[in-house]
Every structure is written in structure tokens, then in C-alpha cells.
Design a protein around this nucleic acid. Sequence first.
DNA 1: ACCTGAACACCGTTCAAGT
DNA 2: ACCTGAACACCGTTCAAGT
Lengths: 202, 202
Amino acid sequence: MRRKRDAQAEAETRKDAPLRSDAQRNRERILEVALAELTRSADAPLSAIAKKAGVGQGTFYRNFPNREALVLEVYRYEVQQVADTAAQLLATRAPDRALREWMDRLAQYAMAKAGLADAMRRATCSRGSLAGLGHAPLTSAITLLLAANEEAGTVRPGVTPDDFLLAIAGLWQIDPHSDWQARAARLLDLVMDGLRAGARQR
Amino acid sequence: MRRKRDAQAEAETRKDAPLRSDAQRNRERILEVALAELTRSADAPLSAIAKKAGVGQGTFYRNFPNREALVLEVYRYEVQQVADTAAQLLATRAPDRALREWMDRLAQYAMAKAGLADAMRRATCSRGSLAGLGHAPLTSAITLLLAANEEAGTVRPGVTPDDFLLAIAGLWQIDPHSDWQARAARLLDLVMDGLRAGARQR
DNA sequence: ACCTGAACACCGTTCAAGT
DNA sequence: ACCTGAACACCGTTCAAGT
């Protein structure tokens, strides 16, 4: 008896249960449209996204129970793309060059997807530190970069990914219009100096 | 003729035109309630604020044409309070101690008014860099602090208030629950190190 | 000159009815 | 099992009617 109920519960919450192919297509279309719309405007109406994706409201809510869930999924996927470039940079450059170039790419990303980042902040800010969840994919990339630099003596020991993320938080506050390149560069220079302070190598 | 029209236009847009005393009271009550409600929850309904302040919807909108206007006014007043403490700190401490303690106070403020800060971000993020407007009162305080430190050789020359604000942007991203004290301290230490790098005195 | 509150528009979310 | 779209709830904003 107990077994049967457990099995049922498991089947119900199974994330990788195969979706019917039309459902699968719907989900992908929603994500695709959502990326475009949210990037353009952080407060794009969900109803507009559903309509552009060619699905009913109900279908939309079947896939994403609320705005937060949708934004989180879109955001995480995009952030993952940037995170994945860290390993490649580390393989082809000196650790401190790799770190700095990775940050530049992150800045470029933050500017290109400013609308999406705003949507992320708004969807999550209300419920405490859910913002952290969006950055989760970045953490392992940052860990990699920091470890390499620490070993090379170009960053002081003991800096955590959390420290790093807080230090570069200003990136997401820069207006994508105006001269964001200069402002971002000055911020990142300052952060690099802060990270270097107290390192072996000077 | 021309004169008359100009005079009329001036009178209409005059900011310091004396308000009728009941209107004045209404405005103050709205601000008072808004501070309390927005601090508690960033998305407090405006209608609830109007009701708690004991005014009709129309009166509310006569004073604040939209959510943004209200949030901006509340936020700026509160931020001003912190900004004003900079001069006093500079008069009683060494420049670098004053700078650091001022940042600590800013952190305390950011945590206490986290809801208000969220409201500010949401109201402004949509329209580009309006966020800058909210921080305007901080700029002069920061200019003062940076100048004193530059002269004392404890901060490298050329750092602008904008650089500084971007560097500490992480403060507003820290969750007021959990151990914000530790996280804020680590961030501010890092920023101080970054500011010191390249200064005369080491 | 200023206030009130009903009315309107818009958006997120739900749900009964379909296939 | 999944979809649709009308219906509902909620909130921001406006405006005709009052004092």
C-alpha cells in the first residue's frame, strides 16, 4: 500500500517524464519567445508571450506556474552560456588575463540582455535572495577562475564566489545606452585591484 | 501679452506655490505611510497606501502622478539622511576611517530599508538609468569623502563618485536576513583595497 | 482649489469545456 | 494528457461630481 503511494507521488513529480511531442514543442516555443520579449522589455506581459508563442493562457501556466519560474528558466540558460566559456579562456591564457576577459564577456552579456536581467531582479527581489539562484550557474565558473588565479598568486587567497559576485554587482546597474564600455572597464579594473591586494605576486 | 502668458505659465509650474493647509497635511500623511508600507514590502499597493493615509485615489494621484514619483521622493529623503552624516564623520576621524564607517552606515541603511530599495529599483529600472537620480544625494557626500582620502593619500587619484557607487552596488543585493554583516564587511573590505591600490600612501 | 470614490483598462491566474 | 479561451481578481489611473 505504502509502496504504491510513493510510486505514484514519484511519477507525478518526475521532472524527466517524457512530454507529449506537441507539449514539448509548445514549451520550447514559449521559451524562445520569452527570451526575445523579455530581453526587449523587462515587463513584457505574459499574455503577449503566450499569444506570440501561439498557445492559450492555460498552456502557458501549465508549463510555468508563475512569472518567476519562466524568467528564472530563461535567465539561467543564458547565463550558462557565459559561464561555459570560462574553462576555454583558462586553457588559452594566463589566469589573470582569463579572469579579466571573462568579466568583460559577462559585462557584454549583461548589457545585451539588460531587459532580461531587469526581469530577473524584479521577479526575484521580492522573495529574498532568490537572485542567488539565477547566478548559480556562474558560481562554478567563478570558482574555477579564482582557484587558478589564487594558485598563480594573482588573486589573494580566500576570496569566495559570493564575494566576487557582490563586487561586480554594479555591472547590472549600468545603463546599456550611454558609454557603458568605459564605466564597466573602470569598475572591473577596480575589482581586479581589490582582488590582487594581498596576493603573493605583485 | 507675451509677458502675461509667461507669468501664467510660471505660476502654474511653480513648485513652491503655497499649498492649502489640508493639502499639505495630506501630502505629508501619504509620504509617512508610504515610507512604512514600502519599507515593509516593495510592492505595497498604492491603493492601500492611499487608504491608510485616509485620502481618496484622486488625491493620491494629484500629489504623485505615478508610482515612480512617490518612490523617488520617499527614497531620496531617506538617502539624504545617510549622506548628511559624511561631513560629521570626516570632522572627527581620519579620512580612511571616516570613509569606511560611512560605508558601514550605508550598509546598515540598505539593510533596514531593503524593501524601499527594491521598490526604487523596480520603479526606475524600466526607464534606463533613473536609478542614478535616486542616488543623487549620495554623490556630494561621496565626493567629499573621496577628496579627503585622495589628499591624504589613502585612495588613488581619479576615482569618481560613479565608480564608487558601482563598486558598492552589491550592498543592495544582500539579503537582509542571513548574516548580512559578514557579507557586507567582506565586500567593503574588497572595495577599500581596490580604492587604495595605486595611492601614494601604502 | 481641492477632494472623493466609482469606473475603466490592463494583466496575472484559474477553470470548465473541449480534443 | 493536453489544450483553449472566457472569466475572475487585483491594481494602477482617470474623471465626473461634489465641497
